Amino acid sequence: MSYIKLVNFEVQRFFKFLVALVVVVATTQVIAAFLSASNYKDQAETVMQREKLLAQDYVTDYGSYSIFNFFNNSLFLLSIMFAAAMLMIYIFFIWYRDWLGKSSFIYRLLMLPTERRNVYFAKLTAILLFVFCIVGVQVLLIEVAQLIMKQIIPAELLIESGAIITYSYELMSILYPKTMVHFLVSYGVGTAFVAMIFTAILVERSYHLKGIFIAGVYITLSLALLLVPVFIGYNTDYFYVKELLMMDVLMALIVFVSAVIIANYLLKRKINV
Rank of each mutant, 00 (worst) to 15 (best):
V139N: 13
R205N: 13
L227F: 11
L140Q: 11
V228L: 09
D61Q: 10
I214L: 11
L250Y: 10
S66V: 01
G190V: 06
H182Q: 13
K16P: 07
L158V: 02
I164L: 15
K270H: 03
A26P: 00
K102A: 11
S64T: 02
L157T: 07
K16G: 14
F71K: 13
F92A: 13
L77M: 09
E243R: 05
L244E: 03
L158D: 05
I212D: 04
L124P: 04
L184V: 13
I91K: 11
S161A: 13
Y65R: 08
L21P: 08
T46M: 14
P154W: 04
A126M: 05
Q49A: 15
L77P: 08
E243C: 05
V189F: 13
L21N: 10
M251A: 04
A163Q: 00
V194F: 05
R97T: 06
F92L: 07
V11L: 13
R108H: 05
L6T: 14
L128N: 04
A163M: 01
L202F: 06
I197F: 14
V260T: 06
Y265T: 06
L21S: 07
L53W: 09
I67F: 04
N118D: 08
F14C: 06
V185H: 00
F15C: 00
K5G: 12
F105S: 10
Y62M: 03
K5A: 09
L147M: 15
I67V: 10
I212A: 14
F68Q: 07
Q138V: 02
L87I: 11
L158N: 02
I271P: 04
W99V: 12
A55T: 09
V144E: 00
V255I: 07
M1G: 14
R50L: 11
F68S: 04
Y58R: 00
L18H: 07
F93K: 14
F130Y: 04
L158W: 08
L171P: 08
E51R: 12
I127D: 03
L209K: 01
G63M: 05
A192F: 00
F82N: 10
L158K: 01
F82D: 07
L77N: 14
T28P: 00
L171C: 00
R269Y: 06
F70Q: 11
I219C: 11
D237F: 09
F132E: 13
L226Y: 05
I153S: 05
V139D: 00
G63D: 11
K150F: 14
N72A: 15
V217F: 07
I212H: 03
K178G: 09
K242M: 12
Q49I: 03
R205D: 14
G162Q: 14
A122H: 06
Y234D: 15
A44H: 00
Q43P: 00
Y176M: 03
V230Y: 01
F70S: 03
P154I: 09
L221Y: 03
Y234R: 13
S173N: 08
W99K: 07
Y120K: 01
K41L: 15
I91P: 07
I254D: 01
Y65N: 10
I89Y: 15
L209I: 02
V131T: 12
A224W: 03
Y107Q: 02
F71I: 02
R50D: 13
L140F: 15
P229G: 06
F231C: 05
K41M: 10
N272A: 14
S161K: 07
F132K: 12
D42A: 10
S36I: 01
V59L: 12
